[in-house]
Nucleic acid binder design. Structure first.
Lengths: 116, 116
DNA sequence: TCCATGTTTCAATTATTCATGAACTGTTGA
DNA sequence: TCAACAGTTCATGAATAATTGAAACATGGA
């Protein structure tokens, strides 16, 4: 992932509403959620929601899929993963303390034996 | 790490100059680099540098240490690690695909056997 | 066709952030 | 004490981002 792309993704994530958006969409997987449902869930106006969703999409963090008159939005785990990887690898040069700390909060594989 | 702190850290990282700053400071470890040297290395004016450094410091991503008339800045690997962990754990709920992707670019432990 | 629904786009406004240079504080050494 | 150096803070203006409401667009069903 090049620096410009990563920067766009970080800017997209560095926002309260969009962080909520990602958190809401994450468990819904590839199916995602219709824009209207998202708006109701987060209490966002339609135009504000559309704005934030397009920011996430332009940053490669979500994907939109049209179905009838609904538009479903889903996270792109690859985009988010690559953004995090950029921070970890390119920006922190895999600094062992960063890596270690990053695995401690609630750790991905080692601590939880990979459920869900 | 609470959401507000993480958001501040993300906002601090979502900036070209500050990303450079982190990358420059990362290999210098706890000793860090004097502000002047940083400014010369990155071609930043004194006041701009001071502004960016204080943004990073307020976000808990760097630490400042006064020595004579110099101020040395060093990254706080813990702060950065916890920010990345927030993204991975709280925000992405340890989504397996995010985690996997995040280890693929150049991976921390598994691929490089932990050198440096 | 007409209307209701779901979503996006646009223009205007406000708020935040960025950048610049000048002024200021503190430290060192003559 | 004074001048030079290292950094920070402040005031200003420029650029960007966020928010709002209204209007536009597209789709599906009566």
């Amino acid at each position: 992932m090049d620096r410009a792309t990563a920067l766009t993704a970080l800017q997209a994530l560095a926002n309260d509403a969009r962080l909520d958006l990602v958190r809401l969409l994450m468990p819904t997987g590839v199916q995602g959620l219709a824009a209207g449902e998202i708006g109701r869930a987060l209490g966002l106006s339609a135009s504000r929601l559309s704005f934030h969703l397009s920011a996430l999409e332009q940053a490669g963090l979500t994907r939109a899929r049209k179905e009838g008159r609904n538009v479903f939005y889903a996270v792109d785990p690859n985009g988010i993963g690559r953004t995090i990887a950029f921070l970890l690898n390119d920006c922190c040069m895999d600094h062992p303390e960063v890596v270690a700390c990053c695995r401690n909060g609630r750790s991905p594989a080692e601590i939880r034996p990979a459920q869900d």
